[in-house]
Nucleic acid binder design. Structure first.
Length: 640
RNA sequence: GCCGAUGUGGCUCAGUGGUAGAGCAGCGCACUCGUAAUGCGCAGGUCGCCGGUUCGAAUCCGGCCAUCGGCUCCA
């Protein structure tokens, strides 16, 4: 039995240690290892994050947090945000403070200054922060009652803090943290002192609404990040630079894949090379869907307003739609493909024996997005969904969902994308009764579990007509993109009075499933471009081979090589320009063409080609047939 | 839509009140060359658009358009 003055502390490694009551976490860390003492930032005590100065007065489980822990990083970045706010307040007296949380790779703080910050201000703020770091000011925690806190922040004119305090529960004890001359309302915890900050970088300034609501005042947000080692910061900055280097908008121009012109903001022009990519993706898509029992359809882009009223889009989606009039009658440009698909289903009678009916459509949809959110191929105003609608018996739900999950898995595997799954439930602005939503959500959940997939639940993030499973794929820089979704829908069949004839000869209601795999062809091409940094695998590469004669003596032979490959369906170009071979290779590398075939006198004489592979360099000479065989296999197997 | 920044030849960028520049790409000529840049020459821009100030505007002012970074990961 432990002494009443002793507390038992269980540590993450399963060990239990005893300390005198009143021992601080600082001391606990010290008793574990000197390294932990150096690196400790805060701690988790019984799953609550606290400062190292926190003292233990009862048995607890303790985990000391360092930068290696997710929670530790949050503490580190949040403390950095406080230091930045202190620097800003010193340089811009009278600036009002809003909030300053840690985010995934750093932190931000929202300010309400009299003048917007400029990029030059950032350097000055960084300098001032350095002084605060050098001074190594301790972070000290204070607790206030609500009235005390209110009085304090009212007096210093911190209106946003006052607003925050007013929203907190009446009886709550409020905490503030002070470092030197700076005091901020904050739950904490914080690192022990400002001297722990080693590498800080302020990244950019941007406008942000108070509480993210466009009805509120626009504040000035400063983004930054921090690390305990300069090398870690450098690595992070390198990752940002790498992402910039891979930007699909830049590569799209360089590789002549697509453009977006002032004449059509948010509307993409696909150039011939981009079209090759698109067509290859579509070819792959069609083949895989055919194998899985899908039929392809195409429905009109403009349809009568009455259809959209019936589907509920008029009520729920009007703000994002474009409208037109034909012969004095209202029409809408489709923002989704489902109503069109439904009209095809309804065009004839269906027997239960026909179900499931799987109708795929590469459907062009238009959606009005705010001008400020447009972004290359990733966020556009018109895009092609690789859509499909499955009409099925209620008893087929689970099997069909599993079928789609398998399909998505197969697709992403081809490109080498790992992915995460999320389940989104009933939103605020939803159509239909609660029990139907429960039924639908349960079916999705069951399929996920049957398939043994881990998933995260997003409460309230579903479509207005049903819950959904989202697939978020991860690219080579660790960024995630939402692509595939599966949405279960009991409502559209109701609204459109869909039915099938059952075994009993009576009419019954089918269930509908909406799903996409690529998501949008445009966005998927953008993601692929960044993922491969423009160096597409051979099966997708707009140009697969470029033939490079060394002098114009080999022009005729090079031409015959090109013709032969063209004849076999290879995408090949000839570079017959009067340039040195090094120059031609350099350019072909820059265009990220997978294979270069150098043809000089030796090759003409032996009837071979000297193969150079984009990634590996010179592979030496080989007969053209052997090269072609090798390339065909690489293309057929979709080697990445 | 809102805040801030930006807009100069196909691309990347210089030029802050006095006759529009460079590199790359393109075209021509010479060289006929073996695995990431041969040399010389030529052509190419109503400086995003509209208006204003001025003897004079890419440059200063106003409006518009487009692009870029953002617009709750909540003390």
């Amino acid at each position: 039995m432990a002494d009443i003055n002793e507390v038992r502390v269980s540590l993450p490694d399963g060990s239990v240690r005893e300390y005198p009551a009143g021992t601080s976490l600082w001391e606990v860390a010290g008793s574990i290892s000197p390294r932990l003492t150096r690196e400790a930032l805060a701690a988790m005590v019984d799953d609550r994050a606290v400062d190292l100065s926190y003292t233990l007065n009862r048995d607890s489980s303790v985990r000391i947090l360092t930068f290696a822990d997710e929670e530790g990083r949050r503490v580190y970045r949040h403390s950095t945000a406080h230091v930045m706010a202190q620097a800003v307040q010193r340089l811009f007296p009278g600036v009002k403070l809003a909030i300053g949380p840690a985010i995934t790779d750093g932190f931000y703080y929202d300010f309400d200054p009299s003048e917007p910050f400029t990029l030059d201000d950032l350097a000055a703020i960084e300098n001032e922060m350095e002084k605060i770091v050098k001074a190594d000011l301790p972070f000290e925690r204070y607790e206030f009652s609500r009235p005390e806190a209110l009085a304090r922040f009212k007096e210093s004119g911190q209106d946003y803090k006052v607003e925050l305090i007013k929203e907190l529960p009446e009886d709550e004890v409020l905490s503030c943290y002070r470092q030197g001359d700076f005091l901020d309302l904050c739950t904490g915890p914080h690192m022990p002192s400002t001297g722990r900050l080693k590498a800080v970088k302020l990244l950019n300034v941007a406008g942000a609404y108070w509480r993210g609501d466009e009805k509120n005042r626009m504040l000035q947000r400063i983004y930054g990040t921090s690390f305990p080692k300069k090398s870690m910061l450098d690595e992070y900055l390198f990752r940002i630079a790498e992402a910039k280097r891979r930007d699909h908008r830049k590569l799209g121009t360089e590789l002549d894949l697509f453009s977006i012109q002032d004449e059509g903001p948010g509307f993409v022009f696909f150039h011939p090379k981009g079209m090759v990519l698109r067509n290859e993706l579509e070819k792959f898509w069609r083949e895989e869907h055919r194998k899985r029992g899908y039929q392809e359809i195409r429905t009109p882009i403009i349809l009568n307003r009455a259809l959209w009223e019936q589907s509920g889009h008029w009520e729920h989606y009007r703000d994002n739609m474009y409208f037109t009039k034909i012969d004095g009658i209202d029409y809408a440009v489709k923002p989704m493909n489902c109503p069109g698909s439904i009209l095809i289903y309804k065009s004839r009678l269906h027997s239960y024996r026909d179900l499931p009916v799987r109708m795929g459509e590469l459907g062009l949809v238009h959606r009005h997005e705010l001008s400020g959110v447009l972004h290359g191929l990733m966020r556009v105003r018109c895009f092609t969904q690789d859509d499909a609608h499955i009409f099925m018996l209620p008893s087929q739900i689970k099997e069909e969902i599993i079928g789609v999950i398998d399909l998505v898995d197969d697709f992403y595997r081809v490109f080498g994308f790992p992915y995460r799954v999320e389940l989104s439930t009933k939103p605020q602005k939803a159509m239909g009764a609660g029990h139907i939503w429960e039924l639908a959500t349960g079916a999705l959940q069951e399929a996920l579990e049957a398939r043994g997939l881990d998933y995260k639940v997003n409460e309230g993030d579903g479509a207005f007509y049903g819950p959904k499973i989202d697939f978020h794929l991860e690219d080579c820089l660790g960024r995630t993109w939402q692509c595939g979704t599966i949405q279960l829908d009991f409502l559209m069949p109701e609204k459109f009075d869909l039915n099938y004839v059952g075994e009993d000869g009576q009419k019954h209601r089918p269930v509908m499933l909406h799903r996409v795999v690529f998501g949008s062809m445009e966005r998927f091409i953008g993601i692929l471009t960044e993922h491969f940094a423009g160096a597409f695998p051979a099966w997708l590469a707009p140009v697969q081979v470029r033939v490079l004669p060394i002098t114009d003596r080999q022009g005729e032979y090079a031409r015959s090589v090109v013709d032969k490959l063209l004849d076999r369906g290879i995408r090949v170009e000839l570079d017959a320009r009067n340039e040195k071979i090094g120059y031609k290779i350099r350019e072909a590398q820059a265009r990220k063409i997978p294979y270069m075939l150098v043809t000089g006198d030796k090759e003409v004489q032996n009837g071979t080609v000297a193969v150079r592979r984009r990634a590996q360099g010179d592979l030496g000479p080989m007969p053209l047939d052997r090269f072609e065989e090798m390339l065909q296999e690489e293309i057929n197997k979709k080697v990445c």
